[in-house]
Design a protein around this nucleic acid. Structure first.
Length: 295
DNA sequence: GCAAGCCTGACC
DNA sequence: GGTCAGGCTTGC
């Protein structure tokens, strides 16, 4: 699942391999993964050179030079759950679920977008549209200051787990790193953000940055689908302490890791190392059930 | 049946 | 406006 470290790894790969090259032609095999009309998408990108690469949260932007006096534009990529960006020689056979091909010049390589579950989206946008889209996201997780982080937890009464996944608070975390950061900070996932002390918030802020930094250094996590642009898996998987380790011994205390569903997301934590606070976030539906008269 | 990011719509 | 459930999707 491409979260910030995986997207960062893809971006670094593209920076090395496609910066300065021209998108000679764009072929959309499945318009479902394109936001807006596929024809406009292909026409908008074709015959432009890659001028730069940017990332905010899990979103990747490929900056394309202006052509014929037009301003520059961006190819915006959101990989969703199973999206892959692959740099490959054009002659290699297409793998199933390949939805977009972008032919590069000079050379005989292409960028392929492959996405089994098709939750990802590609779009062509102006720099103004890019800003609008990115303004809807909170600060990029590695950039957020401790003060900003703490401030964002105030008056938030859902679970800290859902809060970490909310891209408007903080951009870049998905299910893997949210669980890992909470474990590292020793915070129970059902804790209400508003009830985090300054000290707990500081631990969480540091844990988020730490986990992301370590994962970036190891080229991300491959749990099932993620591969970088050269088809290599990430190496952080072996470092995971709680994610998908239900029933296995906690690496800190040896007690079994437990699984909870929070906000519809499976959540992995150690009940001993992440003790339940006196008061936890309770979803509305459960509240409603609890309010029913008990016979 | 479960995995998951993100969007939509419902509820308070 | 905050929060959450549901739906999308396919392979294991």
């Amino acid at each position: 699942m491409p979260e910030l470290p995986e997207v960062e790894t893809v971006m670094r790969g593209l920076k090395q391999r496609v910066l300065g090259r021209r998108l000679a032609a764009v072929e959309v095999l499945n318009p479902l993964v394109i936001a807006g009309p596929a024809d406009d998408f292909a026409a908008g990108l074709s015959n432009r050179s890659v001028a730069g690469l940017r990332r905010k949260g899990k979103t990747l932007a490929i900056e394309l030079e202006g052509r014929n006096g037009q301003p520059s534009c961006y190819l915006l990529l959101r990989l969703g759950m199973t999206g892959q960006v692959i740099l490959t020689p054009q002659e290699l056979p297409l793998q199933p679920h390949t939805h977009v091909r972008i032919f590069l010049e000079p050379g005989s390589e292409e960028i392929r977008y492959r996405d089994v579950r098709r939750f990802g989206r590609l779009r062509c946008c102006t720099s103004q549209e890019l800003e609008t889209i990115w303004d809807r996201l909170g600060p990029d997780a590695p950039e957020i200051s401790e003060a900003q982080f703490f401030e964002a937890t105030r008056h938030r009464y859902g679970s800290v787990k859902s809060w970490l996944l909310n891209q408007q608070m903080l951009a870049g975390l998905g299910n893997i790193y949210a669980d890992e950061a909470l474990f590292e900070a020793r915070i129970h996932p059902l804790t209400q953000p508003a009830r985090l002390s300054a000290a707990s918030a500081r631990r969480l802020h540091r844990a988020v940055k730490n986990v992301l930094k370590r994962a970036v250094n190891r080229q991300g996590t491959t749990f099932r689908d993620y591969l970088d642009i050269e088809g290599r898996p990430g190496n952080f998987s072996v470092r995971l302490k709680v994610y998908q380790r239900t029933g296995q011994p906690c690496r800190r205390c040896g007690r079994p890791i437990r699984r909870l569903v929070i906000g519809g997301r499976s959540t992995h934590f150690c009940p001993h190392c992440q003790p339940r606070p006196r008061r936890v976030a309770v979803p509305r539906s459960s509240k409603r059930v609890a309010r029913k008269p008990q016979y």
